[in-house]
Write a protein that binds this DNA or RNA. Structure first.
Lengths: 276, 276
DNA sequence: CAGTGGTCTAGACCACATC
DNA sequence: ATGTGGTCTAGACCACTGG
């Protein structure tokens, strides 16, 4: 995978080339093109982007590593640096790559800075201070996917899943009770010992131990009353209002790989969101 | 404001120019540059962006209108089209401008499509269907800013404010009770009659009637128990868990111009959020 | 058809990091 | 000094919109 890849019939140095769309057949010798010559138009930089994602997905470049330089990729794909740049720009704005001037472009990782963990953790202190919670794993068990879980994870009802229960504590105060459901097929060998041995965030754990990278997530937030069990763990009264945060997290190809329900007291914390 | 504006000492057609940083004095004849020649570096396209924002702020181009073409702006600012393009790209990703191929670049507006209203309305039906609620204004009154409101709106405690109370109904079911606080100085003449006469979203109303454009907002979500008053309006039991959504919305220059607290039942709806 | 934004190229130089 | 990403230019052609 290090020689030049031809995306279009253009030979380097040729005086004139047709930038895009002029000749669809020549445009996409590598990428699937519909049977018809119809109105399917994919810019070159999106094809490059797709190729980069594919290589990221196969683990060609590991999280935290640098990918080849823009010039190198441009030569490899036989396109201009600007085209590679636009592809990388989009991947960077998707938080899949991270650009660092003077150093290179790196595969994003959940294991680096503490601050990057706040990307998927929206719970903040009411006074605005940053505080990272401590996580305690209460339980881990195998189970079968309920209809609800199966729908969220796009698997079959009854498929084998792994369930985790954990508490997040802020300054010692139990604040969030999470129940996390994972498809067993992707997390073989997950055990409490292995989890406890890992230092860092849960998504860092998934990434380094199982090669599963969480790229984005959808959340649904509701207000619910505390059930007796939850009330005890979070030390609130039964029936107290709690935030219910349901999350489906996705990896490459929009594949769902985690379903999570968090119950959260909002005594001294809140769920923070920015609208743009 | 239609002649050429010089951003740097470079005359069009000059054989060589120093793109950026080479000569800070020549680089920023228009934009404020610190007293020292120090490490303050602003790319040209960001200067262009700032100029565009300034003109948007002064109302030179109204919401919904087209701004001049890229070529025109490039000529006006004496930079290349690519530089203008990059400035516009960022404004478009900030939802301040909207690009439409073949037509032009337009000032974003809250008054256009119904779908654009969901940008600031995160309440969704549990079944995923899109449904736009009906709004009923219950009350409007003048008041003085409490300490909390003053802090949020960055005004002085006791300053004059306008408070609105309204209900959002989905399929007739009262679901959200909003209390909205506005600085009176920016919304002179706001009355129930004027509000009720307006067709469209509240932010559309603010935009067209008062020239106040909401650009972004921060929200804090909590779970609270319904007080008797709210319970009656939303037709839930006293003490029922409700979502409390506090919002501070900002206009140009990160100026806060709205403080809002919404209380929301999550019987058949939820607060939706995407993490990227 | 002309005008707009969208894509692509080639080349130059700057800012930053590292050796 | 070298290599990386970041900025800027100039010019070409494509895709889309509307007269």
């Amino acid at each position: 995978m290090s020689e030049v890849v031809t995306l279009n019939g253009f030979a380097p140095g040729a005086p004139v080339r047709t930038p895009h769309g002029a000749d669809v057949a020549a445009q996409t010798p590598l990428l699937a093109t519909p049977t018809s010559v119809g109105p399917t138009f994919h810019p070159l930089y999106q094809q490059i982007k797709a190729l980069l994602v594919k290589q990221l997905e196969t683990g060609e470049w590991q999280p935290g590593e640098a990918i080849p330089s823009e010039m190198e990729l441009a030569a490899r794909f036989a396109v201009s640096q600007g085209t590679v740049r636009k592809a990388i720009d989009e991947l960077a704005s998707d938080n899949i790559l991270i650009r660092r001037q003077g150093k290179g472009t790196f595969v994003a990782t959940h294991t680096e800075t503490k601050s990057s963990m706040f990307r998927f953790l929206r719970i903040r202190r009411n006074d605005g201070q940053d505080e990272y919670p401590e996580s305690e794993l209460l339980e881990i068990k195998r189970a079968r996917a309920s209809a609800e879980v199966a729908r969220a994870l796009e698997i079959a009802t009854g498929d084998s899943v792994i369930q985790l229960r954990r508490v997040l504590r802020y300054s010692g105060m139990p604040t969030v009770l999470d129940e996390i459901t994972l498809p067993a097929s992707l997390f073989k060998g997950l055990s409490k010992e292995r989890f406890d041995a890992y230092e860092g965030s849960m998504y860092g754990f998934f990434e380094t131990e199982f090669g599963v990278r969480m790229l984005r997530a959808n959340e649904q937030v509701r207000a619910v009353a505390a059930d007796p069990n939850t009330a005890e763990v979070l030390r609130v009264g039964i029936g107290s209002p709690l935030l219910s945060v349901e999350r489906v997290a996705y990896t490459y190809g929009d594949k769902p790989v985690e379903f999570r329900r968090g119950l959260c007291t909002t005594r001294s914390h809140h769920y923070a969101n920015e609208l743009n």
